[in-house]
Amino acid sequence: MSNLVLFLLMMCGGVFIAVQPSINARLAQKTGVIESSTVSFAVGALALLIVSILVGRGSLRGVAAANWWELTGGLCGAFYVTLVIFAVPRIGTAAAMAATIAAQLATGLLLDHYRLFGYQGAPFDLKRGIGVVLLLIGAALVFRR
């Protein structure tokens, strides 16, 4: 898969991430915040189980060899999805996404710089630092009422 295709797919993922909170928040009006998050994860887990069975190339048996902390990604996702379901009706989708994206970029900068989790990353430099600061300023401007 080319880097351009991967970039375009990530752009599509960004669209889905922006739409998901509004969908889940609407469901929460009928079910509740925690319940909406539960339904969201259950539907996603079922879809991924089907895809894993049909086209997966790995093995779910590898979970037995995983470190405990490698299994916490779902907790991170559950925290985020639940929090955004709560936040979107109160501060709006744009403000919730701006805060999320700014925090993701700042965290990504640190993960890359320190090569945490064993992945090759780019070291911190002034240009990357300015990019994060500008994004944080942009997030503050979007949030400002």
Results as ranks from 00 to 15, higher is better:
1 M>F: 15
1 M>V: 15
2 S>D: 14
2 S>N: 13
3 N>W: 12
4 L>R: 14
4 L>F: 11
5 V>I: 10
5 V>S: 08
5 V>F: 05
7 F>D: 05
7 F>M: 07
9 L>D: 06
9 L>T: 08
9 L>C: 14
9 L>H: 09
10 M>C: 15
10 M>T: 15
11 M>N: 08
11 M>V: 15
12 C>W: 15
12 C>R: 11
14 G>F: 05
15 V>D: 04
16 F>H: 05
16 F>P: 02
16 F>K: 09
18 A>I: 05
18 A>L: 05
21 P>A: 09
21 P>E: 07
23 I>N: 05
23 I>D: 06
23 I>E: 00
24 N>A: 09
25 A>S: 12
27 L>P: 08
27 L>V: 01
29 Q>W: 01
30 K>G: 07
31 T>P: 01
32 G>V: 09
32 G>P: 08
32 G>W: 06
33 V>G: 04
33 V>T: 13
36 S>R: 03
38 T>V: 14
39 V>L: 15
39 V>A: 11
40 S>I: 04
40 S>L: 03
41 F>S: 00
41 F>M: 10
41 F>R: 01
41 F>W: 04
41 F>V: 00
41 F>G: 03
41 F>H: 06
42 A>C: 09
42 A>V: 11
43 V>C: 06
45 A>S: 13
46 L>Y: 04
46 L>A: 08
50 I>F: 06
50 I>W: 07
51 V>L: 14
52 S>W: 15
52 S>I: 12
52 S>L: 15
53 I>N: 10
53 I>F: 14
54 L>D: 00
54 L>V: 15
54 L>G: 03
55 V>I: 15
55 V>L: 11
57 R>P: 02
58 G>F: 12
59 S>R: 06
59 S>N: 10
60 L>R: 11
60 L>T: 07
62 G>E: 11
62 G>W: 08
62 G>F: 07
63 V>E: 12
66 A>L: 13
66 A>Y: 09
66 A>I: 00
68 W>T: 00
70 E>L: 01
71 L>E: 00
71 L>G: 04
73 G>E: 05
73 G>Q: 03
73 G>L: 09
74 G>V: 07
75 L>S: 02
76 C>R: 02
76 C>M: 11
79 F>G: 01
79 F>Q: 04
79 F>R: 04
80 Y>S: 14
80 Y>H: 12
80 Y>L: 11
80 Y>N: 09
